[in-house]
Amino acid sequence: MRILINTTNFAAHFDREVKALTQYDIDIYGLKDKQYVYDFESGSEFFEELEQDLISSGHFKTHLTLDKSATMLILNFDIQGEVGLVCDRSLEDFDESIDLKERLILKYSDHDEELGDEIELIRHETVRINVARYIFDYIALALPMKKLHPRFRSDETEDEYEEDEEGILVYQSQDQDTDSDDTESEEVDPRWEALQKLKGKQ
């Protein structure tokens, strides 16, 4: 699944000769059947040129190995760095670390088609590919669903733990020792007490 970017015609925009993105062009026409290695260093202009509002800035490096054969290209991405996000709670800017590895298979065909998250078809006559779109997609998909500034994350974990606790129903067997501390009976969960009443017990 590819990320939908807020632009009216991303494909047309992406085909334009944009200086910040042309460095991600890879000429595949005439490549021999062997492995190739590419390294890219990206800054905030990468995200600016993509005209999206998910990521505001960033700096990262991409190490790409491309294995070419007569029928396909296998691309292995190793992306490390950080990207700038906006906190969903406070609207503050903060940096999110990224460290991910992804694989993409481009198979030669008579037409272009996306078959899944890892496989795409490209035409036999394709001269070059631009990997900027793939890099952005991998980064975007790796981001947390809820974007929180690091100072809020411990609070968020505690809130989630409390929510989980509220869903726990504690059961006490009648066979257990009845000589337990009387104070425990005084602090019975009201939800448990209500269930007891439904059973005709006080």
Rank of each mutant, 00 (worst) to 15 (best):
I139Q: 05
E162G: 02
Y171H: 10
L141R: 07
Q174I: 07
Y134D: 12
R133Y: 15
Y138P: 08
I122Q: 02
K107Q: 15
R151T: 06
P144Q: 05
R153K: 13
K107G: 06
I139N: 03
L169M: 09
R151F: 09
R151H: 11
T157V: 09
L141Q: 11
D155T: 02
V188Y: 01
L141I: 08
R123V: 07
S109R: 11
H149R: 10
E163I: 00
L141V: 04
E186D: 10
H111C: 08
S173Q: 05
S180W: 13
E102P: 08
Q176P: 01
H149F: 04
R123Y: 04
F136M: 04
E162S: 08
D155A: 09
L121I: 02
D159S: 10
D181I: 08
E163R: 00
E184G: 03
E162M: 10
Y108H: 03
E114F: 05
E125C: 06
A140S: 09
R123F: 00
D117R: 03
E163W: 04
H149K: 12
A140F: 08
I105H: 09
L169Q: 09
D164H: 00
E158C: 05
I105W: 11
L106I: 08
D159F: 13
L115W: 05
D110K: 07
I168F: 14
L141T: 06
F152P: 05
D177C: 10
S154L: 10
D175F: 00
V188C: 01
E158T: 12
A142F: 00
V188I: 11
E162F: 10
T126A: 12
Y161E: 11
H149A: 14
G116N: 12
Y161R: 14
I119C: 03
E160A: 14
E160H: 07
I135A: 06
E158K: 14
S109W: 15
E118D: 15
R191K: 13
E186R: 04
D175T: 00
R128T: 06
Y171A: 10
S154I: 04
T126D: 02
A132Y: 01
A140L: 04
D189V: 04
I122R: 04
L143Q: 01
Q174E: 10
E184A: 14
T183M: 07
S109M: 10
E125Y: 12
R133D: 14
Y134M: 07
N130A: 03
L106H: 03
E187I: 00
E166V: 01
L143S: 09
R128G: 01
